[in-house]
Design a protein around this nucleic acid. Sequence first.
DNA 1: TGGCTTAGTGTATTTTTAACACTATTTATT
DNA 2: AATAAATAGTGTTAAAAATACACTAAGCCA
Lengths: 233, 233
Amino acid sequence: METKGKFTYDYERPALATDCVIFGFDGGELKVLLMERETEDSQSTWSLPGGFVYMNETTEESAKRILHEKTGIKNVFVEQLYTFSEVDRDPRQRVVAVAYYALVNNKKFQIAAGLNAKNVAWFELSKMPKLIFDHSKIVKTALIRLKGKVRYQPIGFELLNEKFTLTQLQQLYEAILETTTDKRNFRKKILSMKLLKALNEKEQNVARKAAQYFSFDKQAYKEFTHSGFNFEL
Amino acid sequence: METKGKFTYDYERPALATDCVIFGFDGGELKVLLMERETEDSQSTWSLPGGFVYMNETTEESAKRILHEKTGIKNVFVEQLYTFSEVDRDPRQRVVAVAYYALVNNKKFQIAAGLNAKNVAWFELSKMPKLIFDHSKIVKTALIRLKGKVRYQPIGFELLNEKFTLTQLQQLYEAILETTTDKRNFRKKILSMKLLKALNEKEQNVARKAAQYFSFDKQAYKEFTHSGFNFEL
DNA sequence: TGGCTTAGTGTATTTTTAACACTATTTATT
DNA sequence: AATAAATAGTGTTAAAAATACACTAAGCCA
């Protein structure tokens, strides 16, 4: 128990923190951004970016602030995941963590990737190092959520640039859902929802037929949902 | 800030509480169990059962403990809903609330209903009183979750007795999803999953043809999911 | 015994999903 | 200039699932 501090309560309180699982998509692979810290015995351990919640911010604001402070990423999709409260999850003190997950598009992915020299790095899911505390469990929970959610909410687009090809979109879904899909059937289904705008623009400098660029039409999606339709893939 | 207390920290901490949305199903209606408290000005206000998290319990244990202490209900389905952290959600002090929702079957519903004389009561969703703080928002969030979840997880059964008729089951789904369904199609679909066991028992004392009782077959569901099938209604 | 009430059941149509293979375009290579 | 390499883009058919729809069965009551 702290004694030097200056905030005193008439009952004991857990500390409250936020942790963030940051997903990116690159090279056909789903990746997670992790931070490295040196421990006292000068071993390195990896963890999710996280920190304590301030008194004047919500947990969502806290997660976004920490995301920005620690990785430079801002203005991305962030959603609450789950609150982890095992009594001994942090052996040093009782910390309850409200976990969030973020989806980072390819452009911001590259910026975050540029920070590699420092203490953050992208990891493929199959190549994740051991993580501190219950952070592996948090990542696992985030993956399950992402897999479930991507099928009935158009959040996958958050992982691509504003303009993307149908092949990229299909690869994204295949990576997240760990499936393969027939190209024609995938295109038929996604185009039938009329939520994609075909742009007057094609890929450049590719040694093959250049693919058409599309963008997600947020306005059409609004009307789509208001008409009682449900996104589903 | 408290001054008489004996727990002191070197930075300010929000209080951590749990609140619980308790769903019951009776008379073809989905209901929520609420608590009444007297305020200082002797007006009554309604709220979700809730309380502070102890240092030696997880938030889930806290929610279950409080549920039991305040309503007598235990051994029911309880699942984490969402963490509410608006800075001013409780005007008296900063409280972050981890909300849970519980599904109470009809038998336990009746017991809880018997507490009516005291300070708890079941309310139909359309007849809910004004609630304290952000508790209406919490109920709304719980409803959205229940609606979403009931379609791809067999949690609806938690709201019925162990034995139930297909008509009861259908009414439950219709109440939660706010839809109507064709009786033959509903039966065809639910029975095709082979997750219901027909019991050698019928309704008693009804002034019409007595309906067959069924129960949910947990063992079959385990095998069902392990075979890669998904519950879906 | 006739009336009331809800249980229980089958078929035909429409819609959705799944399976499947070739041509078109662009760049790189020789 | 011709050809090879790579991936974009496209339509049809068959199977499965969802939907729409109406009568008979059983038990109690008046």
